[in-house]
Computed example of a mutant assay.
Amino acid sequence: MPTRPLHRAGTQLTIVDAHHHLWDLASGRYPWLQDAYHGSAFFLGEYQTLRRNYLPGDYRRDTSGYRVVASVHIEAERSRMQQVDETRWLHELRDCTGIPSVVVPHISFVQANRDEVLAAHMAWPRVRGIRSKPVTARSPQENVTGQPGTMQDPRWLEGLAALERYDLSWDLRVPFWHLADAAEVAAAFPGIRMVVNHTGLPLDRSEQGLSNWRQGLEALAANPNVYIKLSEFGLAGGRWDADSNQRIIRDAVAIFSPDRAMFASNLPVSSLSAGFPAIVDTMLDALADYDDQAIAKIFAHNAIAFYRIYG
């Protein structure tokens, strides 16, 4: 692996973190963190260490020594009865601490009061997009096509279409076996900016699994309105496979180009398998053949433009 130039050392990079979470278990309801524990069902396995507050001070501690100049908060699965409460709380945090820079809240595209909740989110100035997870199959062998809440559901598509009226982006989080379905949606809505979360979740690191993942990404990348977040490379059981992760990063950037890829930490969830320094170093090692302009786009400029981070 080529030696990384000193001026591209992680601690000297300007970083915009395009995906992280915060939560206060005393002021909000987070069922996945506060209710019955289901570690075996979580895609990364045991997550007991996440069942505590994670606030701006914790985020600053985890990223200390790095030039993180802005961040994007992605909804943290707070109670779906408190969707707008989360947005309000994050704006209050921003006013007090400077974190986060902008907010991507949650709304279900099929909930009965969808339009009312969407309008309530828009009352807050730092809202930039929506994350709404469609119903997905639990494995590549299961078929849920056309079921309520899936990406083929007319009601769900109607909800997605509403984002364009507000100039909101969509954070797309589906397992790799649904990437081709998402590509069809992206083609149908060219006016909506979309960004693939967690590198398309390439959880199957077999050659066939990675081939299927790449085909899905290629279908998505054919749509110029789609970007990708280079994030969450951890595997179940806290496994961090640096060589495999670098391969995934290189493939994803080759498919989307440095113009449509952005760095994201996924803190604190990513801490189940790696700390911030390991994430940054793995990314830089994978991108060692790219020039400084490309690195700057991936680590900062693309997220600034996509999420309209003005200050």
Rank of each mutant, 00 (worst) to 15 (best):
299 F>T: 04
42 F>A: 11
73 H>G: 06
272 L>G: 08
311 G>W: 09
64 S>T: 14
5 P>Q: 12
136 T>K: 02
77 E>P: 00
219 A>S: 11
92 E>C: 01
149 G>Y: 08
252 A>M: 09
154 P>D: 06
90 L>S: 05
35 D>I: 01
231 S>I: 03
236 A>H: 14
192 I>P: 05
183 A>F: 08
76 A>D: 01
16 V>P: 01
111 Q>N: 08
273 S>P: 04
228 I>K: 05
130 I>T: 07
90 L>V: 06
60 R>T: 12
41 A>V: 03
174 V>L: 05
50 L>D: 09
179 L>R: 09
168 L>M: 10
65 G>L: 09
230 L>T: 07
41 A>Y: 03
259 D>V: 02
164 E>P: 00
167 D>P: 01
141 Q>H: 09
243 D>L: 05
176 F>M: 06
78 R>I: 03
210 L>V: 04
124 W>F: 15
205 R>M: 05
235 L>M: 14
244 S>W: 00
47 Y>Q: 08
217 L>R: 02
264 A>P: 00
174 V>F: 06
119 A>Q: 12
197 N>F: 00
180 A>G: 01
118 L>C: 10
106 H>F: 15
76 A>Q: 03
255 I>P: 03
49 T>M: 13
232 E>T: 07
294 A>E: 14
78 R>A: 12
154 P>F: 10
176 F>W: 11
124 W>G: 08
177 W>T: 00
152 Q>A: 11
277 P>K: 11
94 R>W: 03
134 P>Q: 10
30 Y>C: 06
44 L>C: 09
82 Q>L: 02
89 W>D: 11
247 R>D: 09
262 M>Q: 06
201 L>P: 00
6 L>I: 05
133 K>F: 12
170 W>F: 08
85 D>P: 00
29 R>V: 06
280 V>K: 09
